[in-house]
Design a protein around this nucleic acid. Sequence first.
DNA 1: CATGAATGAGCCTTCATTCAT
DNA 2: TATGAATGAAGGCTCATTCAT
Lengths: 201, 201, 201, 201
Amino acid sequence: MGDDKRESIIASALELFRNIGYHNTKVSDIVKAAGIAQGTFYLYFKSKEDLFRQVVEACMDEIVGALDRTPSGSEELDGETVMYRMIRQSLLEYYKNRNVLYLINRHGADSPELSEVCKAYYGKLAQLIIRTLKHYCVFPGYTEEQLEIEAYAKIGMVEKAAYHCFIDKGYGLEQVELVTEVLVGIDCGPCKPPGADGGLS
Amino acid sequence: MGDDKRESIIASALELFRNIGYHNTKVSDIVKAAGIAQGTFYLYFKSKEDLFRQVVEACMDEIVGALDRTPSGSEELDGETVMYRMIRQSLLEYYKNRNVLYLINRHGADSPELSEVCKAYYGKLAQLIIRTLKHYCVFPGYTEEQLEIEAYAKIGMVEKAAYHCFIDKGYGLEQVELVTEVLVGIDCGPCKPPGADGGLS
Amino acid sequence: MGDDKRESIIASALELFRNIGYHNTKVSDIVKAAGIAQGTFYLYFKSKEDLFRQVVEACMDEIVGALDRTPSGSEELDGETVMYRMIRQSLLEYYKNRNVLYLINRHGADSPELSEVCKAYYGKLAQLIIRTLKHYCVFPGYTEEQLEIEAYAKIGMVEKAAYHCFIDKGYGLEQVELVTEVLVGIDCGPCKPPGADGGLS
Amino acid sequence: MGDDKRESIIASALELFRNIGYHNTKVSDIVKAAGIAQGTFYLYFKSKEDLFRQVVEACMDEIVGALDRTPSGSEELDGETVMYRMIRQSLLEYYKNRNVLYLINRHGADSPELSEVCKAYYGKLAQLIIRTLKHYCVFPGYTEEQLEIEAYAKIGMVEKAAYHCFIDKGYGLEQVELVTEVLVGIDCGPCKPPGADGGLS
DNA sequence: CATGAATGAGCCTTCATTCAT
DNA sequence: TATGAATGAAGGCTCATTCAT
């Protein structure tokens, strides 16, 4: 039952953060929406920012976790296919967690503490990408430094495209494929006709 | 002399916003740093948010303007070279305006009004990119929709890479070339050995 | 206990408004006098003006209510006696609510909203008087327009006299009779020796 | 030319005070309307309140002066006629100075200093009325105290009626006679048919 | 006399957090 | 666990007044 309340707070908060922004959302709004008393909030969260951090962190962990499991170790895959799958998986995760996608992009990481959460998230993502790039020898000649830049660029690429498509344009799940094709296309640019690079199952 | 004060306010504000965040910066902090009286602030800016918006908007206009002038009409260039130049130019602009790069990424666009500013900025960038992609037939078979996704992806790619390099890692101007190479490399992926694609003058 | 606080705020506010004026009274003064915290004020009143309006409105309603009940329906009375009683009752009410009498006359109805409250109050009083004048055929030949002027004149007469006596001169309850005699005397002017017009018990 | 500016300030101020209230009118509004610079205001008036006081005081002096001259000493008049003339004259003055009539009733006398101005005004009016009542033996048996109440009651009567007619109802000069008749009628009440008490030329 | 940029004290209101019940 | 009344620090903005030119 306590967990019910916790979930209720999180759900109400996400909704409100999304619609009116973190700084415009009052704790009193959250508890009203969650149907609990003002003081009860503090039985579940240390502070308003703690709630934000927990919510954001949870979503981020989910995204990182999903990506981490993407190239199922059992199969033999080439780098290109793996990249395709990771991008597709990222988009699916961003779609599922588009509330957080929205929050991070719209309302930023105002406090130093929250900023660390974001930095850590991007760091994990980057490491994951670098590991994959190395494992599949996607950029054989790259130094560690170049791989890092490459990784952050990819992160930005996917995130901004996801924001544009899922938030601004309201794309649904059925359009994830389309977006993936374009993003993967960037990886090989105009070299190959897009759409011809053999999708995936 | 009035402009002195205006500039002084902007400089102090940027510094403070950067260091402690928009929401943690008090107008009283800004005026103290600028060496003026509290009321004087409101002779130059309608509100704290107005200041933020003006600063951000001015920088964004500068960036868009610089990119708009990038492919000098007089020369005959191929698409690849133009893309290279635009990415390089973007990075230079983000370096020059890294305070704003920082602000937008760290502190978000909390108010609806500011959000519009950002949306307009990305919209202009995207249009500019789409126009260029079309003009140089970089993606001949792409629909308008695909071009748009492509454009936003590029924007995110450059922005996140710039943030990582200039803000997190503290890269200087002399490393812009390196970053550019990597980002351009994405455009042709592993097809060509990076660094071999003929830089530019 | 909540009502205790509300009453405490009202009492402190009236005292302060009276002594130093509405515009010179800070909310911080009120809460200090009421022995509560600054924020507590806003649990009971929407704003400083809201408090003023509520206080004033409550008193006005009380006055109007009291006058409305004045000519007890059971008795057979002539117009003159009824007027006497109404004037006497008005004076008693103004005495009881002399804080408001003071406020309205000293500090006015600065905001449009408050102005409406006053206008409504005088409007109700006027209607009440007109109704009575008609019912007892005090001015048989008067048009509606003339009755209205008559009513407002009476209102002003009583109010100004009350202000002068209760506020400026500090008259007590025991002098209400004296004032009533004079005011009623106006109604018959020098025709009859004042005090001879058969008051009331 | 200096007087031009002074008059311009006064005119603009009256207009603004009337329309939006003393407390809502900024000095910057006044100087803008008067077409002068902010600092110039203080060459002519010590402060905003000083301006208000001067404006109000001037109008009040005019009213008192006019009433003082009303019963032209050369004629032989009975008390009733004199009262008629004074009431009529008061109404005319209030009509002419209805801006001040409005100000005093709507925006009050918030500061102690201004309060003194009003008190003095009513005091002068009262003395003038008492003197007249005595001179024409209108209330032969009245004590000084009774006469004073009588005087203040008359003042309130005229003022409230004037406010109602000239401000609320928008009566023009041509209706002054009508109002006068009603107010004088109060003096003799229902004893005589109103309108039959011999007006005046 | 005139200007208008600069001043800075002042104040209402908000809202995250606490705590007695 | 749950409540919700109470807290009080905090801060953006106003505006009457001044003063160097």
